[in-house]
Amino acid sequence: MSKDITLNVNGIDHHVNIQGNETLLKVLRDKLGLTAAKEGCGAGECGACAVIYNGSPASSCLILAVEAEGVEILTLEGITPKDHLHPIQQAFIDKGAVQCGFCTPGMIITTYSLLKSNPDPSEDEIKKAISGNLCRCTGYVQIIEAIREAARRLKRVKGRRK
């Protein structure tokens, strides 16, 4: 059964025709061309499909697109500034936190959300925050270092703005 809905993604309203059983992840990828979010398991266990949903990170493979109408959705594409990288993204590069890159969009989404609510997380808080994002390449150590570095840089940016 198909339905016309409006999805607010990265600040833009998109009018899309969806099937009742389609997930938000599928609609983002297949209908809006936003392919940063990945399908790693389709069961909400790996975090590769994470998006910011109503201000919190969520597995977009577990959300039906039809439920997402009226919700503010932010994807990695929406976090990336127009002509440079977000400090979190740059910190991931600088600290060697990227290998195959498949988990990276979800990791950055989770980091974005963590640092919004907790600008100065401890190592344990970082580990806890990303423990739902599986990575098979890095062993997480350089990801944790990148998150700490991103927190430092974001604080500096904030400090300058004051």
């Binding site: 990828r29 936003l34 392919t35 940063a36 990945k38 399908e39 994807t75 990695l76 594409e77 990336t80 990288l85 993204q89 740059q90 991931f92 590069i93 990227v98 890159g101 498949f102 990276t104 969009p105 950055i108």
Partner: peptide, 15 residues
């Protein structure tokens, strides 16, 4: 390949 991978620009088979 860092830029491609942190920006979502990197395309994998499913993309």
């Amino acid at each position: 390949d860092g830029y491609d991978k942190v920006s979502g620009n990197a395309k994998y088979i499913a993309d």
